[in-house]
Amino acid sequence: MLFDEIKIFMRHGQQFIPDVTKVELAPLFRGRPEISASITAEEAGVAQQLCPTGAIGTSPASINLGKCVFCKECHFLFPEKIRFTNDYKIATNNPDRLIIKAGDNSPVTLDADLVRKEIKSFFGHALKLRQVSAAGDNACEMELNACGNVNFDMGRWGIEFVASPRHADGLVITGPISENMAQALEICYHSTPNPKLLILVGTDAISGGIFADSPALNRDFLNKYPIDLYVPGNPAHPLTFINGVLELTRGKR
């Protein structure tokens, strides 16, 4: 009996990713986009017309990762001008860095000056987070669960999700925040002791995504409290989340 388990264990082998900063994802993975400097205003305008969530700007041509649903249709329209790299490190604390401009192929990073001083000393060694799904479609939620699984194993840095906001050092919000969930979210935020982090995961949370203009949402919460980290994606990849949180709490690695 035990022998069966040992056999499975042997075949299973090592599952965890030794270095989460150096993983090469599948070539087709849709991560940080790059726009060629040669894109014309007219082409950008056509792409803007097609974009389902208004993520594309024209002067200069740009893609807002906070609005982008990573459908890659703009690439299929202008394969030579817009491409999506498999770079998953796209989390940032500076909303301006979410906007990828034509000709700018530099990686998305955190702005060290914007990180509150207490974050490193309070949360640099261990971090307990409370997740709130506010009308999330369950894709980001599943990816956040995956952050703790045997492959990504975020527990090795003492980072984990806890059951109560009173045990938590911060909130992780997914979903576009429905009117019906607004009150519960607010209560949860105030139940978390200070100092606390506020992290938005996924395009739906950052901008509302495809639901942005729905009358069933109430996003007032986001205007009231400071946001420490934006983790774009549809859904956000576990590596985007883990790398973003590590950089926020422990600095550039």
Partner: peptide, 11 residues
Amino acid sequence: LGYQHRGVEQL
């Protein structure tokens, strides 16, 4: 339930 309502059908 109802907390997840986003108005999908109207959208």
